[in-house]
Amino acid sequence: MILGKSNGPSYAGTPNMSASKMEVYLEQAKLRLGFVKSRVFRRIATIVVSFSLILVAIILTARLTNVGEVLPKVLGSFLPKIPTCASQNQSGEQDVWKKAEAKYKGLMSDKFTIAMQTYQRPKELNDTLKAILSEDVPSLHEVVIVWNDLETKPPANFVSKFGVPVRYRVSKHNSLNEKLWPDPDYKTQAILLSDDDVYYHPKDLEFVFQSWRKFGQHRLVGALARCATVDAYGNWAYTFCSSKVEEDIYDMILTNLCFSHISFLDYYSSNTTTMNAIRDYVDEGFNCEDIALNYVQSLLTGDGPLLVQGREKYVNFVPSKGISTKKGHMAARSRCLNDFAKMFQCMPLVDETAHIQKGVLVM
Rank of each mutant, 00 (worst) to 15 (best):
S6A: 13
S6G: 13
N7A: 13
P9E: 11
S20L: 14
K21C: 10
K21F: 15
E23K: 15
V24N: 12
L26K: 12
A29Q: 12
A29R: 13
L33P: 04
L33C: 13
S38I: 00
A45Q: 15
V48G: 07
F51D: 03
L53Y: 04
L55H: 08
V56P: 10
A57V: 10
T61P: 11
N66Q: 14
V67S: 13
E69N: 14
S77K: 11
S77H: 14
K81F: 11
I82R: 01
S87E: 09
Q88D: 03
Q90V: 14
G92W: 00
E93K: 10
D95C: 08
W97G: 06
K99S: 09
E101D: 06
A102H: 09
L107Q: 11
S109Q: 09
D110N: 05
D110P: 05
D110C: 05
F112D: 03
I114R: 00
T118P: 04
R121I: 04
P122G: 01
K123Y: 05
E124H: 06
L125T: 04
N126I: 06
I132H: 02
S134I: 03
D136H: 00
V137E: 08
P154L: 06
P155W: 01
A156I: 13
N157S: 13
S160G: 07
S160N: 02
K161W: 05
F162C: 09
V164P: 00
P165S: 11
P165L: 14
V166T: 04
V166K: 06
S175Y: 02
L180Y: 09
L180K: 08
W181H: 13
D183L: 14
D183A: 10
D183R: 10
P184M: 07
P184V: 03
I191E: 02
Y199C: 00
H201M: 11
L205F: 03
V208A: 12
W212R: 06
L220S: 01
V221F: 11
C227W: 00
T229M: 01
T229R: 08
N235S: 14
Y238W: 12
S242K: 10
S242T: 07
S243V: 14
S243Q: 08
E247V: 11
E247S: 15
I249Y: 15
C258I: 05
H261F: 08
S263I: 04
F264I: 00
L265A: 10
L265T: 07
D266P: 07
S269L: 05
S269W: 15
S269E: 13
T273F: 11
T273N: 14
M275I: 09
A277V: 01
A277M: 02
D280N: 15
V282H: 02
G285K: 15
C288I: 13
E289Y: 03
V296T: 06
V296S: 06
Q297L: 13
L299P: 01
G302R: 07
G304K: 04
P305M: 12
L306R: 05
R311A: 15
G322H: 06
I323V: 11
T325Y: 01
C336V: 05
L337V: 02
F340S: 05
K342V: 05
F344A: 03
F344R: 05
M347C: 03
P348F: 06
L349C: 09
D351W: 11
L361Q: 07
L361T: 08
M363I: 13
M363N: 13
